[in-house]
Nucleic acid binder design. Structure first.
Length: 583
DNA sequence: GCCGTTTTCGGCCCGACTGTTTTCAGTCG
């Protein structure tokens, strides 16, 4: 059983315990352990075999034994008994906003409700409103929650949430009563998938700001509105929360509402260790709960708050409690990749396969962005659904690209178009022979038709990495966010093979993919693997994906030196030759 | 269930909002 599977079971145990009304800290212990297992950068079997499980922070005696049982036998008696004791429909009930373990228990005991359907029926019959702790309003809200859940996804892609956030941020920037404003939550942390949109503002007149916020054109319903906070629903079902604080409180609120939750727990803990108290209103010289301005340690921005807690500044993207504290204690966090570091783009399509730009339009676009190079990597013939090129068409395309480059050179332009391919990784070989691949400047190899078998997929990817003409592996897990899980593959082994052969791995910047996942990059970097940031651009507007991808790359701790397409043209040429000479 | 230069027991981050209540429980983030 691999890390992801073990983590999923531990998380599920946490949820089941929550439903049982167990001690919430016990629930949290399971969720913490799941996270700890997930972020392990060595094989779980190895840690178990060497008896090092309980050296991991958050895993004690009991969890050590349970994880060992899972890894060695593939089963866990405790989990199976727990699961059998709870009707499966209850987990779904927990997803209805407004329902937690206590109310679910009441619904179950008084009305025998154990599923969303049963709840809906009871609400419609008016039975729920009669229960203690419930009322007409709660009943109506539950019904609405059920309907909304049916109609809209509860999770949204980063790109959708940014599009919704931008007009709201613009409204805040323009508002006469707003002093400072900022995105917050998982949006500011650039998570690939987001639950709801969090915004923060400072003002002397919060009531007015909140009032005007709830009247924005995109708002379809006001869920809550108080003196400091409002929640609304936007078109498309996305929930947006705005919190308004005094300007003095802004940096503290920014830290608090940016999260993550786990990151904040450590921050508060650090404050307590120093005899201080941290909340969204400030950092106070007090052990007691307080908002007393006389005890406030004033900070003008987030960096000063971190400094007070003995830390260098931690960029929002890294605030996941996945190693940022250890790093920020030791010294400054390295400068992470920025959009302006990119010198070119290496994974792109044209009208020759399934793209919507011609070669000429591609050149125009890339030059208008000030890029120094751009690789054309159309699909290979087996991707017939994408109008993949056969060897003859690819050779034609290479000639066309060489002609364009000749013309650019004659014009004295400082721009280069690379001839490349996104070659399919087939069952037993690549879609093009080595002699054809050797004619290309850049080769990225992708698995588009995976097997339903981890060993098989791993083998295919490793074989592709071992080919001396393959520069990079494209979107190495094939996941489509909110649509399709990654295909089964042993990524640790693939990363190992890429490290050995000097093969780069793509961080595909298509917002549906963001593949390879940011969580795997720190381990890959430690092994010496480098990254290609690929927009996988099929249309003109897809170049914007590069910018989004930079946000994800930052979550993976990628620095400019780790990313191939930050290299200036002459160095890129050398880097492209290296593997062919080495193997 | 985890954890410990204040602790091996008693903590574990903590405040806002809603709705059902007449002072607060439950949920949420």
């Amino acid at each position: 059983m691999n890390k992801e599977q073990v983590a999923a079971i531990l998380t599920e145990i946490g949820t089941l315990l929550e439903l049982k009304g167990e001690n919430p800290f016990k629930t949290r212990a399971y969720l913490n352990a799941a996270r700890a297992i997930e972020s392990l950068d060595e094989p779980l079997e190895k840690v178990v075999a060497e008896g090092r499980l309980d050296q991991i922070k958050g895993i004690g005696e009991s969890l050590r034994d349970k994880i060992t049982e899972l890894v060695t036998t593939g089963r866990l008696g405790y989990y199976e008994e727990l699961k059998a004791s709870i009707p499966p429909g209850l987990i779904e009930l927990l997803e209805i906003p407004g329902l937690g373990p206590k109310r679910i228990l009441t619904l179950r005991e008084k009305l025998g409700i154990e599923s969303v359907d049963a709840l809906e029926k009871a609400c419609r019959e008016g039975k729920v409103a009669t229960l203690p702790g419930f009322g007409e309003k709660t009943q109506a809200n539950l019904l609405e929650g059920i309907e909304r859940r049916r109609k809209f996804a509860s999770q949204h892609l980063l790109i959708e949430v940014w599009s919704a956030a931008e007009p709201l941020l613009e409204f805040l920037r323009q508002h006469p009563d707003v002093i400072r404003c900022s995105p917050a939550g998982s949006l500011r942390r650039n998570k690939e998938v987001i639950g709801d949109l969090d915004l923060l503002a400072s003002s002397k007149n919060p009531k007015q700001v909140l009032e005007d916020f709830t009247r924005q054109p995109a708002v379809t319903k006001v869920l809550a509105k108080g003196d400091t906070k409002a929640s609304v629903l936007l078109e498309g079902g996305l929930q947006a929360d705005l919190r308004v604080v005094a300007d003095r409180e802004f940096p503290f609120a920014q830290i608090y509402f940016t999260g993550s939750k786990q990151h904040n727990i450590v921050m508060r803990q650090r404050a307590i260790e120093r005899g201080l108290r941290l909340n969204e209103y400030g950092l106070f010289r007090s052990k007691e709960e307080t908002r007393d301005p006389k005890l406030l340690i004033p900070c003008k921005d987030e960096a000063e708050v971190f400094q007070q807690l003995g830390l260098h500044y931690i960029p929002p993207e890294l605030r996941e409690d996945l190693g940022e504290f250890e790093a920020a204690e030791k010294g400054p966090i390295p400068r992470l990749l920025e959009w302006t570091d990119l010198k070119g783009s290496l994974h792109n399509h044209t009208t020759w396969s399934d793209g919507h730009m011609t070669l000429e339009e591609t050149v125009q676009l890339a030059r208008s962005l000030g890029l120094a190079y751009w690789a054309v990597t159309d699909h290979s013939r087996s991707s017939f659904q994408a109008n993949g090129l056969d060897p003859q068409r690819l050779r034609q395309q290479i000639r066309a690209i060489r002609e364009i480059n000749q013309r650019l050179e004659d014009e004295g332009a400082d721009f280069h178009l690379l001839a490349g391919t996104e070659v399919d990784i087939l069952r037993d070989r690549l879609d093009f022979d080595d002699d054809l691949l050797a004619e290309l400047d850049f080769v990225i190899a992708s698995l588009h038709v995976p097997a339903n078998n981890e060993a098989e997929n791993t083998k295919r990817l490793i074989r592709a990495a071992q080919n001396r003409f393959v520069h990079a592996l494209g979107h190495p897990t094939g996941r489509l966010l909110l649509e399709r899980d990654p295909y089964p593959v042993n990524l640790d082994a693939v990363i190992e093979a890429c490290a050995e052969t000097g093969t780069w791995i793509e961080l595909n910047c298509n917002p549906h993919r963001f593949d390879m996942d940011w969580r795997h990059w720190p381990a890959a970097l430690r092994k010496g693997v480098r990254c290609v940031l690929g927009p996988d651009a099929h249309r003109r507007e897809h170049v914007a994906y590069l910018k989004l991808g930079v946000g994800i790359a930052r979550k993976g701790w990628l620095q400019p030196r780790d990313v191939i397409n930050t290299l200036p043209w002459p160095q890129l040429l050398k880097a492209l030759q290296r593997k062919r000479q080495k193997l």
